[in-house]
């Protein structure tokens, strides 16, 4: 606050202008998405790049919700994303805790292997993945997506969780164990409550990653019943035309869960929960 007060009004104005420009720049595509979604089909091309359409309509939303398979896609995406986020976070939390707190044989090797998996472009392994999933008879199932997404997200999530655990002083668990906890009790009663922000962040990241994934979903899912939302969006593109209005309306609806999710976990993302534990 002091720094702000001391700097000249000009600098402050400049700072806020720069921020405002950045926010406008980042949010403009979202605005355009929403704008087209509420523009009547007839006006999309005739009004061109007008910032505000002359008439509004919610017809697109109605059509998407009632006359397409959108709700099915939506449900499928929700199952896949929540499943992936939950499984990944549980495994990553356990692995991250082990990396953070214990020394065991092969620790460096496992970390190296996990890093190596992140080095390959997805395109390279998509064929073998397809083959494996096909052999398992899991093509066209949501399970296959959950398994594949979980496998791909675990390394990143593990390192994320490890850094959160690293941020919790070891003394706290020691104090807990001296106070009468077993190691597991100390983990549950002391470390876990302090890791909630970390768990929230990890859940959020993995959820959004799974929610918007297209490549594997496109490869492994063909039947309409098991399509996830990004694949489903493509059905709005037909041979002869693109249903822009409906596609954008679907896109707006697809943003809803991500937004809800982040609003929900936002309070756990507040930094500084461990303040006061140890001398800072």
């Amino acid at each position: 606050m002091n720094a702000l007060r001391q700097s000249s009004p000009l600098a402050v104005t400049g700072k806020y202008l720069a921020l405002a420009f950045y926010v406008a720049f980042a949010l403009f595509p979202l605005y355009w998405l929403a704008k087209i979604a509420v523009t009547p089909d007839k006006l999309i091309f005739s009004e061109g790049t007008a910032l505000i359409p002359s008439r509004f309509t919610f017809e697109n939303f109605q059509t998407v919700l009632l006359q397409t398979d959108f709700l099915a896609y939506f449900r499928n995406s929700l199952i896949v994303s929540i499943g992936t986020a939950a499984i990944t976070t549980v495994i990553a939390a356990a692995a991250g805790y082990a990396f953070s707190r214990f020394d065991f044989r092969g620790k460096r090797l496992i970390i190296a292997l996990m890093l190596i998996t992140q080095m390959f472009p997805l395109l390279m392994i998509i064929a073998p993945i397809y083959k494996i999933v096909a052999t398992l008879g899991l093509l066209n199932s949501l399970t296959s997506l959950i398994i594949v997404y979980t496998a791909f997200n675990i390394p990143f999530a593990t390192f994320l969780m490890q850094s959160f655990f690293d941020g919790i002083p070891k003394d706290l668990e020691d104090a807990g164990m001296i106070d009468g906890c077993t190691r597991f009790e100390a983990l549950r009663k002391i470390v876990l409550p302090l890791t909630l922000p970390g768990l929230g962040a990890t859940l959020g990241f993995i959820f959004t990653a799974a929610w918007s994934e297209l490549l594997f979903a496109l490869m492994l899912i063909n039947s309409n019943d098991a399509m996830t939302f990004p694949v489903g969006l493509l059905t709005f593109v037909s041979k002869f035309s693109v249903d822009w209005g409906q596609m954008m309306a679907a896109g707006v609806l697809a943003l809803v869960p991500s937004c809800l999710f982040f609003i929900f976990i936002q309070r756990y993302l507040v930094q500084g929960l461990t303040t006061g534990a140890v001398k800072g």
Binding site: D171, D174, G176, D179, L273
Partner: peptide, 29 residues
């Protein structure tokens, strides 16, 4: 194990449980 040694320890870093208030910190054992 430490929990059965009946010893109390005061840490250099204090190691207070940040999510518990003072009385719960003191009464945690």
């Amino acid at each position: 194990p430490p929990r059965d040694r009946d010893m109390a320890m005061v840490f250099q870093s204090y190691a207070l449980y940040p999510h518990m208030d003072v009385s719960r910190n003191m009464g945690f054992s």
